[in-house]
Write a protein that binds this DNA or RNA. Sequence first.
DNA 1: TTGTAGCTAGAATATTTATGCGCATAAACG
DNA 2: CGTTTATGCGCATAAATATTCTAGCTACAA
Lengths: 316, 316
Amino acid sequence: MPKKEAYPDETLRMAATLYYTDGLGQAEVAKLVRVSQTKISRLLAVALERGIVRITVEEYLSRNEKLEHRLCSRFGLESAAVIKIAKNAGSAATRHALGHFGAPFVAAMLPVTGVVAVGGGRSVAEVVQRFRRGETRRLTVVQAMGSIDSSISQVDALELGRAIVKLWGGEFLTLSTPAFVSDKKTRDFFLASDQITFVWQHLRRADAALVGVASLENSVYTERGVLTAADIAHLRDCGAVGEICGRFFDARGKECASRWRDRVISIELDYLKKIPHVVGIAAGAERAAAVAAALKGGMVKSLLIDESGAQALLAG
Amino acid sequence: MPKKEAYPDETLRMAATLYYTDGLGQAEVAKLVRVSQTKISRLLAVALERGIVRITVEEYLSRNEKLEHRLCSRFGLESAAVIKIAKNAGSAATRHALGHFGAPFVAAMLPVTGVVAVGGGRSVAEVVQRFRRGETRRLTVVQAMGSIDSSISQVDALELGRAIVKLWGGEFLTLSTPAFVSDKKTRDFFLASDQITFVWQHLRRADAALVGVASLENSVYTERGVLTAADIAHLRDCGAVGEICGRFFDARGKECASRWRDRVISIELDYLKKIPHVVGIAAGAERAAAVAAALKGGMVKSLLIDESGAQALLAG
DNA sequence: TTGTAGCTAGAATATTTATGCGCATAAACG
DNA sequence: CGTTTATGCGCATAAATATTCTAGCTACAA
């Protein structure tokens, strides 16, 4: 059944010419075309679709490929994306831009089918929120760490995994636990539960992982008040320079024997090291040491980072 | 001295890509570029100017060249512009569109230097209002007819001449009389004045003229109440089928001996016939007979007309 | 004919974009 | 250098554009 062509190309050309070439407003165009302004708005959209109007933009290269190559060869990375960020961007703005421009890279790094472990964090959230609906994937997304505090937010792994599955299809395995519990006993109690055992099995054989790499100072835990200044000091005493999924590691990339180690419910760093494709996300130069350690420890195999972060990493 | 480049092309490319390609709003782009929405708006304008963004529209042919050729050969016209008009356009809308699309044609027909006689009328006004500032011309614009009634409006030759000179430069000679006076005596009194004698001399040696061609029914005189239904009937009895500059003519293009003939202050049709380039403007099929007569009489040498008018003219 | 589903148009309204304005900083001038 | 004159920024707000919503229309079936 031939769909009726709503408006002839000639009308579209007329409206588009009056609007774009002659520079009239839609209301003026409407008078000449003898329809409402509403319709002109829709007509112009159709003209764009049909290719009667073409808008081309000189390509903007959001990634610094030179730095990417240097990172890959220096640290033996599988792949890297170094995103250019506006000079005066603060840390929230950096994450925002990193998410926007980095999302396609990360989406390409994740498999179309298989098991994917997903951690939480602000940068990770910015990326995940910008994934686009592409071909449907057959993923088993697994929550790689518990929720940061009792009020679930957009940056929790729980929400991020849910979002991925909603967009790309597949199955989502949840932990339903906090990230940190009061003591080892409680942690072991959780770990012994059927649900968590089940999830843990999947984490161990994950094909890929998506995690944020944080420094001690500027992490979501301090922001949310889960960790105090004293806690940070303690961790630093233990040699910690960075954190992934609530687990703290030293400059060599080894997990620190801090008092938090037995209270966290998240993928173990040793598991993470065995996952073939681990995409780490880090925003900001102040994370360079943490990223360096994570790379040394082999926790991260691909990296999404901002330009100043990459520079600091190469300089350090 | 090289003018400082306000923003680097890279920033412009970034903003333009985010806006046009990625489809973000200016407010969202602003967050990523780290400037205000205001600035994004201005940046995008610059990007368009610099050619970083290019918008191309398939050409719209506003003129029906086939009908133009037929008109020229059939009536021996110097040139013709036949403007396509939206189907459901009323007479005001037709004039409006005729003016928009016809203005470039008329502007091209008028000389860059020399004497130009200008009549009044709604269609003429629509055209003149859309003249664009091009190279400066050295015109002597001459008001070819008096003002239609006491309250000068945008369609009076007085205003139109003024507008042309303001836009293109040159000198404007005004009549400062009404189009119609109460009797022959008054008319002769006006004609004897120095100012009018002066203007008349210029009209006689005009290089070009721009006039509207009207029918009896639908003219600005009836609209403004200068002519009553009875007047129209009288004129028709005298054989009038059309009007130019307040002068009525019959189907052969000869001025009618109506009781208005001696009361009008405007260029005589016999003068008009001697002007080398006379551009006539007519909107609407109901004017076809008037236009045909004007062409037969040789008052009009070039024609701007709408499509349905042209069709009626060729059919008649 | 009359009812009804699916569209389409335009009026009302929400959202987005452009612009006038004053302030702050930078360039030009004395 | 101090003063004056420009330039550029973003806020507030006006203007323009997109979207929502409702009514009317067409086509088709009963």
